[in-house]
Amino acid sequence: MTDPTKKPTPAGLQLDNVEIFQGPRKLLGMHAIIGPGEILTLMGASGSGKSTLISAIAGFLPRSFSCTGNILLNGQSITSLPAEKRRVGVLFQDPLLFPHFSVLQNILFALPPGGKMAERCDKARSLLHDISMGEFADRDPDTLSGGQKARVALARVIASRPNALLLDEPFSKLDADLRDSMRQLVSAEVTRRKIPTLLVTHDKADAIAIDGPVLTL
């Protein structure tokens, strides 16, 4: 039952007058709502503070920076929550697969706790299957190609069932031919799972391929 006196809680990721400062200097300000399954592309040159914004939303803002405003996820403020309680997934430029885990273990690590081990393994395998990495489950991540690593990284972040996804130039280090298929894969997964997503990039091609709203810093 919903409380009629309250406004219906807006689903998605809401940046409410978020401003980021380095010392006294204002780096950037942003006010935006990203709906479920929507991908907002934020364009900016390097050094414009895009990555810092990602850190702020995910909860790893370095001490030398400060952040004002409010960050809401499905109507709940996450501004003062520690990173691990925000349920905001991040994909970096590098896939950053944990080198001491196998591909499957990387996914298992990300799955929310609970359930029998066999069930968890099934879940992880089906996630890998979805990105056509099914037969690589027991491989050492270091032996995968760049494109394969990127797909596993995507599967891993999806596995953690994030309420929002932040993409920090995730395609910039991929070869040109892989880049397109990866963009499509990300876009498809995000839409299918209705995850509000923020993509920061300096590459116009990303914005064009994703075909969503674009903000430029």
Binding site: S55, G59, P82, K85, V88, G89, V90, F92, D94, L96
Partner: peptide, 13 residues
């Protein structure tokens, strides 16, 4: 960033 990844996957420090 490995640690950032782990935390964004919901793991504590």
């Amino acid at each position: 960033r490995y640690l950032s990844v782990a935390r964004s996957l919901g793991k504590s420090m």
